[in-house]
Write a protein that binds this DNA or RNA. Structure first.
Lengths: 232, 232
DNA sequence: TCTTAAATTTCGCTC
DNA sequence: GAGCGAAGTTTAAGA
């Protein structure tokens, strides 16, 4: 990885056209050919960048650019999409190169898949007497997160999100429409379960007769370790 | 901005729990207090990070960590959310600090807003004799991109996307449902306009009686510069 | 390989 | 400040 701190201006032409006026920035040239341009602020998103695979080449600046103080012209182009990034380098304040090697990668825990496992294990959270039919119940338009039966033997389709928004309600609605065409399992009720549900999503869900369920991840995780705590 | 290349392992606890095994990485400490951890590959997203505002402190490693080769322990915590990042530093290969100063920021052009302007200017693309009513027509569930009248005087609601997917059709469907409840403007037809529309989105749109319109951005941009080319 | 859904999304605008 | 939609989204998972 090559790290360059330089005064530079940047022009991007691709899915959009963008320009960065001259300023001091970090240019990060990764081993896979990609390049990131970072400033002192902003979150993890660079001001500008080019994804791999891409070509890097150094060009001579035009006369008028030289007159303006440009010492080098970097060209980075995307091999697939033909997006181009032109970087005008004025002055370089740091230029170092270090090999980092292959990264073993991030190990995650606590995402939607885990919520689904926990709710499948604690299916009574959707109502006393409920029973799991199956997780990832396949339909032609995609898998329903959880299919279950409630205490009265009615089928329920459960859509699980970490954060419940309108999209999730739409998704569940499509599943319900489809499932309710199957007379073998109809009528199917819907449950929209998430750690947090946006007010608009709640409104839309209620309007469509879909039940909302707020999941307490920490409590569910603890209960999965110690089932007795349910009755503590 | 401080740049550190070090052998390190990382533990994150916050909205999820994650771990990075020991490897050589770039640690980027920005002026606003945020930190990014980058590897040699991957796009612009870091392996791990902490957003500002956050606290940075250096701690003494535990005895067993010292025995494993840890020379320093960095703690980065989010001030608002209480997310915590622990970085175990083994060996430091680079440690430099440079002031970048305030960045003037990115100047963009060519996004959805521009498509909307262009289509508003060239509203006849949706049909001969069409007339613009207004852009960003506000409704209780959000703004309709463009409201127009077709050649027969019927109202049309246009949803514009750069890439048309199912979500966009759902969004337009909600607007149409709402608009059609208003007898003053009903019946309202829908047009789903995008530079590119996914097959599934086309199918769903057709099924709901929504017209699809592929926008040629380059041609529209040229026509806005030279209106005569419409008749060339 | 392609498509779809999730993301520690981030970012920007409107209310 | 909260909420919602867009993003050069990116990324991961499934068909």
């Amino acid at each position: 990885m090559r790290l360059v701190i330089a005064d530079c201006s940047v022009d991007y032409a691709g899915r959009l056209t963008a320009h960065l006026p001259k300023a001091r920035r970090l240019l990060m040239l990764k081993g896979d050919g990609s390049i990131l341009i970072h400033s002192e602020t902003g979150s993890y998103k660079p001001l500008n960048w080019m994804n791999p695979p891409c070509n890097f080449s150094v060009h001579e600046p035009e006369e008028e650019q030289v007159a303006a103080g440009v010492t080098a012209l970097w060209r980075v182009s995307q091999l697939k999409t033909a997006d181009i990034l032109w970087i005008q380098i004025y002055e370089i304040h740091l230029d170092v190169d270090h090999e980092l090697g292959k990264d073993p990668g991030l190990i995650k825990d606590g995402v939607e898949a885990h919520l689904q496992e926990l709710l499948a294990d604690q299916i009574e959270l959707i109502g006393s007497g409920s029973q799991l039919i199956r997780r990832e119940y396949m339909t032609p338009i995609g898998p329903v997160d959880i299919l279950a039966k409630d205490g009265n033997g009615n089928t329920m389709a459960i859509e699980i999100k970490r954060r419940g928004e309108i999209d999730g309600v739409e998704q569940l609605t499509r599943y319900l429409e489809l499932l309710n065409r199957d007379s073998a399992i109809a009528p199917v009720r819907g449950v929209f379960a998430a750690q947090e549900i946006k007010p608009q999503a709640i409104t839309l869900a209620k309007d469509r007769g879909i039940e909302c369920l707020i999941l307490d991840y920490e409590a569910m995780r603890l209960d999965s370790i110690d089932p007795d705590s349910l009755f503590g």
